[in-house]
Design a protein around this nucleic acid. Structure first.
Lengths: 190, 190
DNA sequence: CCCTAAAACTAATATCGTTAGTTTTATATT
DNA sequence: AATATAAAACTAACGATATTAGTTTTAGGG
């Protein structure tokens, strides 16, 4: 009755719809059925754009990583040193707060080892590496520092999202103190 | 044909089977169908022991949190100060390495705000708080420090599990450096 | 102008979680 | 010891989901 409509969907439109769905209802609700409903098409039509649910998850993970990278990049403009690290850290946790479903999608790629997913993630790592080069760190210290920074940011965001921080204590203040302490400690450890 | 068998299952047995399933195949494979298959019963029979899939996830989360708490407690015996923090940190990441599915289950409770789940988690927080009291931290610093420690441990384990650390750099060394740096920084920040 | 291929569709299947109702037997009560 | 109750398994059925196969229409390139 209505095959090949005049205006076909494109992948970006689909991913945006999936992102909204994820933010509003959580990743467990982004099913092919729900997504198709939102786009006013039938579930099998989605297979024209990606390879089933795993395919959607992969695309959405990359889509999210790229958005996150953009926001962190913006936050890194015009700042340096500890101020820069703090700035991208705030951008990271704010991204997870403002787009909880997309952030969740970032971690739900069917195969995290996938080359495309790794590449999207490596841009974020690269940004951190560059900013950490403001300090003179010797040997492998910079690499350990990146691992630490990523651990803090992901752990903090993930725990905050799951309601893990019950204490009546300002979250932004916690983040600032944690990051500053970590950077301080890393620098002192050379 | 075979209702009420002579030896009925008990919840602990079921959770152990579910835990093995999770460790071997990941949490997305611990379905009522797969679990029933492993226990040689039919899926509906599981409803005699917990309230559907959400009920199983909640029980498994608590089961995992308790196991994790036990291992951390063992690691805290006979040590103090930074050595104690390092010891429970190693216990934490080793738990996630040795029981990846159970660690995953720890984060998949249907409602993380659930009182029983919160209680199981709070024991771990309490242990960290006690060990951090070895340092003289003023004001809310101890609370911020606990948040930071938890963020590091969860973030590090989660990223390691998802293959997030590609670099050819010893993971245990990273953890030790990260924790030491953080504790150092926290102490210096008073 | 036509022809191919993209992008929608319908129909059908397997799997899963879940509910309802049944059956057997262990255990507690009398 | 006899009986009643309830726990714990079962079968059967339903709705939702992802997925595959095959069909139809039409946009756009040759």
């Amino acid at each position: 009755m209505s095959p090949r409509p005049r205006f076909a969907l494109d992948l970006t439109t689909i991913l945006e719809a999936a992102g909204e769905l994820a933010n509003q209802q959580g990743m467990q609700e982004v099913t092919l059925a729900n997504l198709a409903k939102r786009l006013n098409i039938r579930p099998p039509s989605l297979y024209n754009h990606f390879d089933g649910l795993p395919g959607l998850r992969k695309h959405l993970a990359i889509y999210g990583l790229n958005k996150l990278y953009e926001e962190m990049t913006q936050a890194a403009i015009g700042v340096s040193g500890t101020e820069a690290i703090l700035s991208i850290s705030r951008a990271y946790v704010n991204f997870a707060r403002n787009y909880p479903g997309i952030y969740e999608a970032t971690l739900m790629a069917p195969n995290p080892e996938d080359a495309d997913v790794q590449q999207a993630g490596s841009k974020i790592v690269g940004l951190s590496v560059r900013l950490l080069q403001a300090y003179p760190l010797e040997g492998d210290m910079a690499l350990h520092a990146v691992r630490g920074l990523r651990s803090i940011l992901h752990g903090f965001s993930s725990l905050e999202q799951r309601g893990g921080f019950k204490m009546a204590l300002d979250l932004d203040e916690s983040l600032e103190i944690i990051i500053k302490a970590f950077i301080d400690g890393i620098r002192k450890g050379k």
